[in-house]
Design a binder for these strands. Structure first.
Lengths: 154, 154
DNA sequence: GATTATTACCCACAACTACCCACAATCTAT
DNA sequence: ATAGATTGTGGGTAGTTGTGGGTAATAATC
């Protein structure tokens, strides 16, 4: 085994077809551990993109949510917002997942998409949006970025 | 054993063929420790060249990235930009790796390339670009260069 | 209940990739 | 110096992958 299971890297250009389907890159499908049974969970990203988790990774998040007390209003809000856009999906025979219209609108997807491995999850972007966000964040916080680079890049 | 494992030094001229493949110098392949299972990770360098890591070295970077919280926007940007151009590759029966078009364009590779050992990673350069960059950097920072030399060269 | 819209599964095909073999140039060892 | 192995470079082919569309089953709407 060469690549780590449930670890995703690299960037791929794909298209959302008229039915709202996108291909999951073959490399990412191969990186899925068997216990996922070909299933991902798609949900809103913290940036305006779609986040795609292997279901076993998502289940860990769900578990943590279960342990939050429902007595606190902010806990309830957090659980609600985390879960409400999440949908588990099995990819079809051609390796595609069917996106929900809700998430397509949220991420502003339209034909051309960028699919990016984010180590333990996957992001689906409208390429134009990504460019904007990227520029904006770098402008705000470029020294923090450099600090991270210094710490992590070998 | 003469060479240190996962330690690369020296410079070699190779060609990128029409399919985008380059040879990894035999010396570098022999320097790969067995736990890499003949696998490198290629990604964008901080200079306009391709960086090639032994996969076990790269996995250390991935691990650090996993531990960054996704709550901070700059963390997400950093993870994305670090990982999006990274691809793990096993070299083929002739000792070559298949470069991605993205990285070929980024490094401006075209036929003749210079492959340079950088101790814990490998760089693949367009020879002309390297010459430019080198000249530019030396002009800017030649005293800093001398300071380093004084500290490190025995 | 009839009609329409949506989803799930199937097939088709062009483009690309991985794997194989070939060969010339270089190195190694006797 | 010569034979044999290794190394760098090129190309062919079979299989995979991304993309589109068709049809039947299911759900939604009136």
């Amino acid at each position: 085994m060469t690549t780590n299971l449930n670890t995703f890297t690299g960037e791929f250009s794909y298209t959302v077809d008229t039915k709202g389907r996108v291909n999951i890159p073959a490399k990412f499908r191969k990186a899925l551990s068997a216990d996922n049974e070909d299933t991902f969970v798609i949900t809103r990203g913290m940036d305006p993109c779609v986040w795609v988790y292997p279901i076993v990774v998502w289940q860990k998040i769900e578990n943590d949510l279960k342990n939050l007390s429902s007595l606190s209003a902010i806990n309830r809000t957090f659980v609600r917002n985390t879960v409400r856009y999440a949908t588990p999906l099995i990819y079809d025979g051609q390796g595609r997942i069917q996106l929900t219209t809700n998430l397509i609108n949220y991420a502003g997807l339209d034909k051309k998409t960028l699919i990016i491995g984010m180590v333990n999850k996957i992001e689906i972007w409208n390429p134009d949006r990504l460019k904007e966000i990227d520029k904006k964040n770098m402008k705000i916080d470029s020294t923090a970025y450099d600090d991270l680079a210094e710490k992590i890049i070998i």
